[in-house]
Design a protein around this nucleic acid. Sequence first.
DNA 1: CCTGTAATTCTTGTATACAAAACTATTGAC
DNA 2: GTCAATAGTTTTGTATACAAGAATTACAGG
Lengths: 218, 218
Amino acid sequence: MEQRHADRIAEQLEELVFDGTFSDGDRLDEVRLSELFGVSRTPLREAIQRLAQSGLVELIPRRGAFVRQPGPVELIEMFEVMAELEAACGRLAAMRIADTALEALREANTRCQRAVEAGDTDSYYAENERFHKIIYRSSGNAFLEQEATKLHKRLKPFRRVQLRFRGRMGQSMAEHEAIVAALADADADAAATALRTHVAVQGEKFHNLMASLRSAAE
Amino acid sequence: MEQRHADRIAEQLEELVFDGTFSDGDRLDEVRLSELFGVSRTPLREAIQRLAQSGLVELIPRRGAFVRQPGPVELIEMFEVMAELEAACGRLAAMRIADTALEALREANTRCQRAVEAGDTDSYYAENERFHKIIYRSSGNAFLEQEATKLHKRLKPFRRVQLRFRGRMGQSMAEHEAIVAALADADADAAATALRTHVAVQGEKFHNLMASLRSAAE
DNA sequence: CCTGTAATTCTTGTATACAAAACTATTGAC
DNA sequence: GTCAATAGTTTTGTATACAAGAATTACAGG
């Protein structure tokens, strides 16, 4: 099944930005990349337009496309939004989640637990992701699911770092239990709170300080 | 100051989609539009790529770009996400809002009130927008502010309809008062709840029904 | 040796040309 | 009259060509 070159290139470029092949501030040279992908500049530029729209690269007129990796502050902000989006998913899912989904959640959780006991971090990440994806889906809001998935993907490269910050995986598992319990009880506020704190990073006080300085400076 | 054609065209195309010049399902004819804008197909296609990324048009390979106006269900979903984003802004703003911003909020509110009394709906919409923008900004989270602003803009064409659904503007004003009070009290939960209900549309029960049907069908 | 400027080279932005797929319409069979 | 096949047209997707701004280098002056 033939795919448009521009589509394929957009995906591959995105991958190259995510996996750190390009560092922050690197310019995406059109001729170099077109040779790399074996196409002309035209489909490559169309792909770049899309990356620009999703914020992965910055387009400076007559200068080129520069990759825009989030700095520490922006990263904290993005995690904060992720926490709120997951909280929203939890709030809605508490009212709408199906029994089958609840069961799937429990299963993912036990597999998560097993991965922790086996020390299998790769498997843990996979099951953890499945756990959260089920909650996105169970919000019963396809648009929210899409937005949450998009940001989740964007933050993927930084999630391991976040986990190291937060300490051990054990605490994360306990929070999963609390989340499932809240959803089973149809307790919207509890589910939202549990998910928010689950995703939130430690550096919140630091961020509060930064933010207050920023608004005071205006 | 010369701007890139692609940028200018992306904005104008977006406008044409928003203001209803193109209906749902319309194909964006490249040659027709390139003649309309007085450019070649190249910059026009680049603009279309961006619209596709933001979801305004759907790109079907070898078929073209079709405008994708949200249907009733998707619209309800988007308003629901808007409500959650505003709630998140309120939650964070309750902790971080500056006194000057709080004052600006009160001023916007009084101007809102005046517009209601004068029956000046245009002015009301302008001040209402200012009110909400201040809250986005006061979240102290530039990324959240950006996301909220983006969705706010996307929903703009449908906001008047929503307001008609909800009844009079008076109730909206009362909710504004409650929001300001919660922010002044630094009551995060109250601010979040007030903003969520303020934005939420009536059709929530209807949506709950639809969503439960959707998840049950899987 | 440093600095400002002009010429050169590179790169982006746009237009045009070409190939292939999809749509349309005509023609022919039944 | 309806349907199918096919020729012709349209439209998308990609490559190439060209124009103009930006970066770089060479060079003259101090």
